[in-house]
């Protein structure tokens, strides 16, 4: 079918396409490369002129220094456990709520949903102190509960799930009801399995949020053994003596798990995000 002329334009377009994207990738990835260079070089190298763009041999030493200051393995495990726990429960809560908002009509539905959406608009600094006070009153300071609970009902996630759930054909649900399935069984057996892509998309958002969540864990976690990565890394940036090699090592490590998480879920993510709202 393809004529020579067409072939020529296809090649030309391919070249253009890849050039544009590769320039984009370079811009987007360069800071990461630079970070990695920082992690393999001694601290002062980061200042050198002209900039050093080659990996050095300080990788192990930087890791050792970092590990002397921060129990990095422990902190990584804390972060992973917290982010996964949060993601799991938060996804469940959001999908249950999103399902109800999308597929049932009940009294107060729109008012409640609208109130949830309003919460997205509130700057987080302003609730910090009352929330901290609440945690103190509950006696939950310095617990992971305090880190996890406040954002567990994550309005944006509920919103996303509701948008997706709307694409479920009502007839499917009715058919299940006719078969005598209870409402919960329908949710777990019929609804959730069709929602895998959306669940993946929402999971990525939630994991990202919790992984990088900084200020709240900082104020509620007192114990350095309980620190999450951002909190631990931040403690390395002080007033007078900053070891950049160490910090770059830490930040490089902190991007790895979230990259892996994204890699695992991204296929689902892409077909899942907002899938529902578009089809309508």
């Amino acid at each position: 079918m393809m004529t020579n002329k067409n072939k020529g334009t296809v090649i030309l377009r391919k070249v253009g396409l890849y050039t544009a994207l590769i320039i984009g990738v370079l811009l987007s990835m360069f800071p990461f490369y630079w970070m990695f260079i920082g992690a393999t070089n001694p601290s002062g190298e980061i200042f050198s002129i002209p900039p050093n763009l080659l990996p050095g041999d300080h990788l192990v030493e930087n890791f050792r220094n970092l590990n002397d200051n921060v129990n990095i393995i422990r902190v990584m495990i804390n972060s992973i456990v917290i982010a996964l726990t949060f993601t799991f429960f938060s996804v469940m809560i959001a999908s249950a709520a999103g399902y109800a908002f999308a597929k049932y009509s009940f009294k107060g539905r729109d008012a409640i949903f609208f109130t949830l959406l309003l919460a997205i608009m509130i700057p987080y600094h302003v609730t910090l102190i009352p929330l901290f006070q609440l945690m103190a009153d509950l006696g939950w300071l310095n617990t992971y509960r305090a880190v996890l609970l406040p954002n567990l009902a994550y309005p944006f996630a509920i919103f996303l799930m509701r948008q997706n759930m709307r694409s479920i054909p009502t007839s499917l649900l009715e058919a299940a009801r006719v078969d005598g399935a209870g409402e919960f069984k329908i949710f777990f057996r019929v609804v959730l399995p069709t929602m895998k892509p959306a669940l993946a998309a929402v999971a990525i958002f939630l994991f990202m949020f919790q992984w990088n969540n900084f200020l709240w864990p900082l104020v509620v976690l007192g114990d350095s053994d309980m620190y999450t990565l951002p909190v631990a890394l931040s403690s390395l940036v002080g007033m007078s003596r900053i070891d950049y090699g160490q910090i770059m090592m830490g930040t490089t490590l902190s991007t790895l798990p979230i990259m892996i998480f994204f890699l695992l879920l991204q296929r689902q993510f892409i077909s899942g995000i907002l899938g529902g709202s578009v089809k309508e």
Binding site: S28, P31, M35, W211, N212, F214, S234, S254, I258
Partner: peptide, 9 residues
Amino acid sequence: MPAITALVA
């Protein structure tokens, strides 16, 4: 990737 970087980095 840029969206998932830690703030400190």
